[in-house]
């Protein structure tokens, strides 16, 4: 296996507050290789977006990275200064946001937004940037790109705007794209198109994708591997098929049981009792133990084995036993 595009090692993000230090991301490790789509799934507040923001260096103060390493193509990027990090954003790491209606500057033509991004990172002339912008719009499926390039964002529909956003994120050909809930704000019919587009573009270019979502359907559709997050920690990490069909962590099992999947046929959805604890009130030991049907004494004391990138699938002392099937 070649060197991973993104390698996150024991990442810790802290938010100092008056009542104590919160850890929205706690010792999270994962790799994404070239052309791979890693789905990051979890409930609101599980730390998925925070992880993405930490990678691209856009944590809102006072949140900060307090431990671990982030390596992009083997180079450490979590300790770069502001200007060095700015050069990486857009050029090496692209980002797609949730709401295409608010992601584009309403007062600037989309062509201007594309060309300014290219000119910030690539050594090309303004004319060339414009030609490339038209090509980029064409590639994301904007019809008549050459005549639409001088339109303003409000002249596009939501789905079209998300295509423009994707064109913007990819226009400097980054090695990694962080897509933070890219389909959540869209109509269901448009969601599938956007996911298909993102998948195709990234496969063609070999771009690694970190796909943050709470939608298991999107993960099952698009991702190669999936990381399940719970209360700032990685609960389970593995190939999508494995995790969906044979979850090991009791939380993942509960998550799958509560997700309607067409492949499983109709049956009553199961719920996980209770709700995810607030960050300031995390229980000792494994954060999931108060809700876990299998919790034992050890779970109340020790947070469970750390998941490293290559060994162990679930951060649980008593993983769900599944019939082992050769992969």
């Amino acid at each position: 296996m070649s060197e991973p595009v993104l390698s996150v090692r024991d990442l810790v993000v802290e938010i100092p507050t008056r009542t104590g230090v919160l850890k929205p991301v706690d010792r999270v490790s994962y790799d994404i290789t070239e052309g791979e789509i890693l789905g990051v799934v979890g409930e609101s507040g599980a730390g998925k977006s925070m992880t993405g923001n930490a990678v691209i260096g856009l944590l809102d103060r006072p949140a900060r990275i307090s431990g671990g390493e982030i390596l992009l193509k083997g180079r450490r990027i979590d300790n770069l200064n502001r200007d060095q990090m700015r050069r990486i954003r857009g050029k090496e790491i692209g980002m797609v946001f949730q709401d295409p209606l608010t992601s584009l500057n309403p007062l600037l033509r989309i062509g201007d937004q594309l060309t300014e991004t290219m000119l910030a990172h690539l050594d090309i002339s303004a004319d060339e940037a414009r030609d490339r912008s038209i090509a980029a719009l064409d590639e994301v499926g904007i019809p008549a790109a050459a005549s639409r390039i001088d339109s303003y964002p409000h002249e596009f529909s939501g789905g079209m705007r998300q295509r423009v956003v994707i064109a913007l994120a990819l226009c400097a050909e980054p090695a990694l794209v962080i897509a933070d809930e890219p389909t959540t704000a869209l109509d269901v019919s448009v969601q599938a198109q956007i996911i298909a587009l993102l998948k195709r573009l990234c496969r063609d270019r070999g771009t690694a994708v970190m796909l943050v979502t709470h939608d298991m359907g999107v993960i099952a559709e698009a991702a190669d591997r999936v990381a399940v997050m719970y209360a700032g920690r990685l609960a389970e990490l593995g190939a999508v098929r494995e995790v969906v069909q044979r979850p090991r962590h009791p939380y993942t099992e509960g998550l799958m049981g509560s997700t309607p999947l067409a492949s499983r046929g109709q049956r009553r959805l199961r719920q996980i009792p209770g709700s995810m604890p607030r960050l300031g009130k995390l229980p000792a030991g494994c954060a999931f133990h108060p809700r876990c049907p299998k919790a034992q004494e050890a779970c109340r004391v020790d947070p469970g084995p750390d998941l490293s990138a290559d060994q162990g699938r679930a951060a649980c002392w008593f993983p769900v036993e599944q019939v082992e099937v050769a992969e």
Partner: peptide
């Protein structure tokens, strides 16, 4: 605080361009 400012930062635009070209005009 708007998303398009965040997105402008995420695209690696210079701080000056974000503040004056994107923010001030709005």
């Amino acid at each position: 605080r708007q998303d398009y400012i965040r997105f402008a930062r995420a695209r690696g635009l210079k701080e000056r361009a974000v503040n004056f070209r994107h923010a001030l005009k709005n």
